[in-house]
Design a protein around this nucleic acid. Structure first.
Length: 686
DNA sequence: GCAAGGTC
């Protein structure tokens, strides 16, 4: 019997799986992908079990195809050596090196047994460098790379999978080498620098404290640390505004001064007085317009994490683990994706029909089908992902979800529905007012919803309604009140975990699968702590950044990732060999570690003092940090400079004495911590 | 024990 899929689409340089004789073992990256592959290869496959692990068997005459799966990486790098620098490492099964990896034992054992009886091997993991490494290491340690092939597909649709298995290539050694190299580089930098800083603390203070540094975590820490320092050194500056209240049709409206020319308090009061004397303003323009707001694209993981944070206050890692659970329950598609596009082959009509069976959504889906008249074309975003589409509901009916699982599931369903809905029409009006004879403009705005559009399905962005009466150009409006408002410039806000994740995305470090975990790791190390207003950096976190900036500046910068990427590309192109790259990295590290070791004592002292386990003899008069200059640490020294510098602004704007200035800024909420500490220390009074 | 990467 000839398989119905076996005869079409072969080409030169390619091998069809159907031409391989004997037993062929196909290795997928994850269980769900294995099932899809089995479905694509045959309409009749047997479901089998080994070591509690499911795999699939296809029999077709003399052919036997086994489709089994990995669960991500089954091997990891490790070393037997202690201390640093360390440059020798081996690949070993993950369950050996990492605790809590027992499940990976079962999968590896199953693959090992299947490998021993197979004649050919196909690496059918995701088509990226990690997938190339995952499949390669399994075949290398349990099978035979000389009898192995690579299947290349970028989506799990049946037609693409069938095509991929008719066009197998040799193992993709360029990708494998690039992937192995990425692992080794991250390991070399991460393990060596982590050990270096841990060991200095240990030899200085005899305390074993876990510290770490890495290509992704350290630049992220540096980013938050910059915000922390700016906030702690911040001194607000007063800015003034004049706020007239007018009356129109019996309604009081307060106006906003735009393009304020006011610099000093005196100016502000003079302008207020001038308006009071005038008693009215003239309408300079009145404009009404509508804008059309398109639905947001379907969710990728970052967008989902952002919305769950904004609407429910969930941390990115919480949202991610909820989404993973929903995926394992088959309620949603694969969540670790960057794509904002739905799969083109998806039957939207039948999926919506399935969703309409879920009582919460019956009415919404019925409205959507009416509104679209069955024309179902979703909006999509620009972001793409080579391996997965955007997150969408599968139509499987949820049972027994917790309230938090429901919340995330609901966001995903509604965002999916909204993608098919029409634009929302928002109505806005703006009135501008002038003071006769002056180049000064005040403004009032109104806003309303003319057509709900997609907000009906995804109401979490719905704009608020603000009524503004109609004005005529040239109309004189009576001013009933004028006040002078003093506001203060604001420091950068404390960042949130989702803000950190968004930043990591924007500079392209980490991946969908790892960003949330790496953020949590910074908290675990006590480099960061949560406050009610967002993430704060601890003294230890600041100290780690300072130290690494001096001794391992590469590791603090986002550019190290760009550099690695370039090296990976060169390896893929065959311009450079993995061994060369590793030798170079080793030489760089060797040199940096030598310089670091010369200052081991100092670094150990600095980090120990930041850990609060040591008080330096020349310490800052205010805190426990080492002295930098004039009896102060760098931070309090800078705060003192800042106090003197910003006083010039205050003197001009408020006309206050230095003493008054200090009293005023001490009371302001956004004045930085280090500034307050300096004021209390030098200028007295708690 | 230390990284970042996959997935359960």
């Amino acid at each position: 019997m000839n398989n119905i899929y076996s005869t079409i689409g072969r080409g030169p340089g390619f091998t069809s799986i159907w031409d391989l004789k004997g037993k062929v073992l196909v290795i997928a990256e994850k269980p769900k992908a294995a099932r899809k592959i089995a479905e694509a290869l045959s309409q009749r496959y047997f479901v089998r079990n080994i070591n509690d692990v499911t795999y699939f068997e296809i029999r077709d005459g003399p052919r036997q195809i086994i489709v089994a799966s990995s669960v991500g990486h089954l091997y990891g790098l490790t070393t037997q050596e202690e201390g640093y620098p360390v440059y020798t490492y081996q690949w070993v099964p993950l369950y050996v090196v990492e605790k809590k990896k027992a499940h990976s034992y079962n999968y590896l054992e199953a693959l090992r047994k299947l490998c021993t009886t197979s004649n050919y091997f196909v690496n059918a993991c995701d088509y990226d460098i990690e997938g190339s490494v995952i499949g390669y290491l399994i075949i290398k340690f349990n099978g035979d790379p000389g009898r192995a092939y690579r299947a290349k597909f970028s989506s799990l649709t049946l037609s693409e999978l069938r095509e991929a298995f008719r066009r197998l290539t040799q193992l993709d050694y360029e990708m494998i080498e690039a992937g192995l190299c990425r692992h080794e580089l991250d390991w070399l930098w991460g393990i060596n620098v982590s050990r270096a800083i841990m060991r200095t603390v240990e030899s200085f203070s005899k305390k074993k404290i876990i510290l770490s540094a890495g290509r992704v975590q350290t630049p992220t820490l540096k980013y938050v640390s910059d915000i922390e320092k700016e906030r702690n050194l911040f001194i607000p500056i007063p800015v003034y505004s004049v706020v007239p209240t007018i009356v129109k049709d019996g309604v009081k409206i307060t106006l906003e001064l735009i393009n304020s020319p006011i610099r000093t308090k005196k100016d502000a009061y003079a302008l207020a007085e001038r308006i009071r004397r005038e008693g009215f303003l003239t309408v300079e323009s009145y404009v009404e317009h509508t804008t059309s707001v398109a639905p947001p694209p379907p969710f990728n993981l970052g967008d989902l994490q952002e919305e769950a944070a904004r609407i429910y206050g969930y941390s990115p890692s919480k949202t991610q683990s909820i989404a993973e659970q929903l995926y394992l329950d088959a309620l949603i598609s694969y969540p670790r994706t960057n794509s904002q596009k739905l799969p083109s082959g998806l039957d939207f009509k039948s999926l919506l029909t399935k969703i309409s069976q879920i009582s919460n959504y019956s009415a919404l889906v019925s409205d959507l089908l009416k509104e679209t008249k069955g024309y179902l074309k979703p909006v999509e975003g620009d972001k793409e992902d080579p391996a997965h589409p955007a997150i969408y509901p599968t139509g499987v009916r949820p049972v027994k979800l917790s309230s938090e699982q429901w919340a995330v599931y609901d966001l995903i369903v509604r965002r999916f529905l909204a993608a098919f809905a029409g634009n929302a029409i928002i109505y806005r009006s703006t009135a501008k007012f002038a003071l006769p004879g002056e180049n000064i403009v005040f403004q009032a705005t109104g806003q309303g919803i003319e057509d709900l559009g997609w907000y009906k399905y995804y109401p979490f962005h719905k704009p608020s309604v603000k009524v503004l009466p109609r004005f005529r150009n040239g109309e004189r409006v009576e001013v009933v009140e004028v006040s002078v408002k003093t506001a203060y410039t604001r420091p950068p806000q404390r960042i949130s975990k989702i803000g950190m994740l968004r930043w990591m995305e924007s500079v392209e470090i980490g991946t969908e699968a790892t960003r949330a975990t790496i953020i949590e790791k910074l908290f675990e190390r006590k480099y960061l702590v949560n406050t009610s207003r967002g993430v704060a950096v601890t003294d230890l976190g600041l100290g780690i950044v300072e130290t690494l900036e001096i001794f391992f500046p590469e590791l603090v910068k986002v550019e190290l990732t760009r550099h690695f990427e370039k090296l990976m590309n060169d390896i893929k192109k065959g311009v450079v060999k993995r061994e060369q790259v590793i030798t170079e990295a080793r030489n760089t590290l060797d040199m940096l570690i030598k310089k670091f070791n010369e200052k081991k004592e100092t670094v150990g002292q600095i980090l120990s003092s930041r850990l609060g386990i040591y008080t330096p003899p020349n310490k800052c008069a205010i805190c426990n940090r080492e002295e930098f200059s004039n009896g102060l640490c760098t931070y309090h020294y800078k705060a003192n400079e800042q106090i003197n510098k910003v006083y010039e602004e205050w003197k001009e704007r408020e006309g206050v004495s230095f003493k008054e200035y200090l009293e005023r800024i001490k009371k302001l909420k956004s004045t930085g911590k280090w500034v307050i500490e300096v004021i209390e220390h030098f200028y007295g009074g708690k």
